Simulated scan of single mutants.
Amino acid sequence: MLERPDAVLAAIPLLAVSGLALRSVIVVTGLGTGLLAAPLAPVGYLAALALVVRELFSGPVAERADG
């Protein structure tokens, strides 16, 4: 059974590579070439960092620290 901590740990690397994957799809298909100028690679890393920070400040760990 998939628990919340397992899902969060699985989501972190998926989010981290999502920016690179999106940029690769844009390059391969040639669609949306204007998006190539956008910094898509760091977006995935920032999303992963945001998930970690959100879990630290509002997840079960923070709730246990309050109580």
Rank of each mutant, 00 (worst) to 15 (best):
L14Q: 11
A48T: 05
T29N: 04
L9F: 11
T33Y: 08
G30N: 04
L15N: 04
L2G: 03
V8F: 08
A37C: 07
V28M: 12
R4Q: 08
S24K: 08
S24N: 13
M1F: 08
A65N: 10
V28A: 13
A65E: 14
P39A: 11
A7Y: 09
S18Q: 01
L9P: 00
T33R: 13
L56G: 13
A65T: 10
T29Y: 01
G30E: 05
P60E: 15
V52N: 01
G59Y: 02
V17G: 02
T29I: 05
P60F: 08
G44P: 00
P13V: 04
G34F: 06
A50S: 15
V25F: 10
A38W: 03
L49S: 03
F57N: 14
A48M: 07
L31T: 11
A16V: 06
L22E: 03
A62I: 04
G19I: 02
G32P: 00
A10N: 10
G44N: 00
G44S: 02
Y45S: 07
T33P: 02
D6N: 06
F57I: 12
D66P: 08
V43A: 15
R23T: 04
V8Y: 02
G32Q: 11
P42W: 00
G19D: 02
A62N: 13
A38L: 15
R23A: 03
A21Y: 09
P39G: 07
D66G: 13
I26E: 02
L56D: 06
V53M: 12
R23F: 12
